[in-house]
Amino acid sequence: METILTITNLNKIFNKRVHAVKNVSFEIKKGNVYGILGPNGSGKSTTLGIVLNVVNKTSGDYQWFNGSLPTHEALKKVGAIIERPNFYPYMTAEENLKLVCKIKGIPYSKVFEKLELVGLLERKDSKFRTFSLGMKQRLAIASALLNDPEILILDEPTNGLDPQGIRQIRDLIKLIASQGTTILLASHLLDEVEKVCSHVVVLRYGETLYHGAVDGMLSNEGFFELKSDNIVLLKERLQKHTAVKDIKIEEDKVFVYLKDHLEADELNQYLFENGIILQHLVKRKNSLEEQFLQLTKTN
């Protein structure tokens, strides 16, 4: 699979004191949706700024397209939105995009194609100042796609949007990805990354805590949710099972966390043979949020 971007031991220090990015390394492969996940101040935007050549790195390296092109040429194959949409308020959506085309030497025919893609073709004659925040964001995405980039970079694409606007942007990201465009987005929203990304890079205080497939981050042993008439005896029996790591009781439910693989039918049989009849048994996966909290807690 073609490598779009390679980041190696990237560092950024501001004012000789603030180490915003610390030895960050990861690769972006063609055809995937990558999320850089972390709270504000984790180094997400700084990392994007460096690879887009708007922030100077302190040390380390990055290469676009395996170094086959100099950075300024490579960036012609990149679409990016790293700030709030900035269009002329008194001009229409079509006029604003045509101006971008004129500046970048892109055929005007792309304007209608991209407006249709982002669901704004019917509003092509509406002035930018009449747009909602979500519509402004979608117009910005249309603008970033005018040159048919190989990768689209988005910094906090749903920030400040209402639930409907968030859903529209998420659906749009999925649609763009389905058409073959690689996407890299920075977000502090776990839910956003879990719903739209195939791969994730988790940053905290500029350091990489995890990078790889979202499914890989979620592929843990999970936990069981149990109910029984005798919770005290149930807990006692569970503590003797070698696959059980931890047990928590909340109201009438017992949550069983594992250290080794264990199927539901195996646990059910074990408990039955030890005098426990279950009223309820469900095996669940830890959410990305639970994994993220566990990751940041143990590092």
Rank of each mutant, 00 (worst) to 15 (best):
residue 53 N to E: 06
residue 281 L to M: 13
residue 195 K to M: 05
residue 262 L to C: 04
residue 123 R to H: 15
residue 44 K to C: 02
residue 19 H to W: 13
residue 183 I to S: 01
residue 148 D to T: 15
residue 122 E to W: 10
residue 67 G to Q: 08
residue 4 I to Y: 01
residue 134 G to A: 12
residue 46 T to W: 05
residue 56 N to R: 14
residue 52 L to T: 09
residue 282 V to A: 03
residue 109 S to W: 08
residue 232 V to S: 04
residue 24 V to S: 04
residue 104 K to T: 07
residue 64 W to D: 00
residue 12 K to D: 02
residue 58 T to F: 04
residue 179 Q to W: 10
residue 168 Q to P: 00
residue 99 L to S: 12
residue 31 G to A: 09
residue 227 K to I: 14
residue 220 N to C: 06
residue 261 H to A: 08
residue 140 A to F: 07
residue 176 I to C: 02
residue 166 I to N: 01
residue 105 G to E: 12
residue 33 V to D: 09
residue 64 W to A: 00
residue 212 G to K: 13
residue 110 K to L: 04
residue 280 H to F: 06
residue 123 R to T: 07
residue 45 S to Q: 10
residue 95 E to S: 03
residue 102 K to F: 09
residue 96 N to R: 13
residue 116 E to K: 13
residue 31 G to E: 11
residue 9 N to F: 06
residue 125 D to A: 10
residue 202 V to H: 04
residue 105 G to Y: 11
residue 128 F to N: 05
residue 7 I to M: 01
residue 44 K to L: 06
residue 254 V to C: 08
residue 131 F to Y: 14
residue 216 G to L: 07
residue 49 G to D: 07
residue 112 F to C: 00
residue 41 G to M: 11
residue 143 S to P: 00
residue 126 S to I: 12
residue 96 N to H: 11
residue 115 L to P: 01
residue 278 L to W: 14
